[in-house]
């Protein structure tokens, strides 16, 4: 039952994608209307700061970690055999 429901959604990937982008829009718009408590640091005062932080943080983390792994840390399965 659950599997069929997921199949149904997978066949309509465009709608799911649309909902996701609508949520992103909502998250940014929501930040315009809320009350801001006393800020802890400058980021708390900028509208949409956490959107940028989330996106850049995620991209940087992927690029840096995957990059380090690729050029240095990565070994074929079990580097300690032999």
């Amino acid at each position: 039952m659950i599997a069929r429901w997921i199949d149904y959604l997978r066949e309509r990937a465009n709608i799911v994608r649309g909902c996701f982008f609508a949520f992103l829009l909502f998250a940014v718009l929501f930040d315009f209307v809320i009350d801001r408590p006393k800020p802890h640091f400058f980021g708390d005062t900028i509208i949409g700061f956490w959107s940028l932080f989330g996106l850049l943080g995620c991209l940087l983390m992927i690029i840096i970690c995957k990059g380090l792994s690729h050029v240095w840390l990565e070994r074929k399965e079990d580097p300690y055999d032999n």
């Binding site: 998250a27 932080f53 943080g57 995620c58 992927i62 240095w72 990565e74 399965e77 580097p79």
Partner: peptide
């Protein structure tokens, strides 16, 4: 909402780079 939404966007953009390979990493 913003942190998770836009982290999700980051994953969506980079998903092909995150594809798992049969490797392990030194520590």
């Amino acid at each position: 909402f913003q942190l998770f939404g836009f982290t999700g966007l980051g994953f969506y953009l980079m998903v092909k780079y995150l594809k798992p390979h049969d490797v392990s990493n030194l520590d």
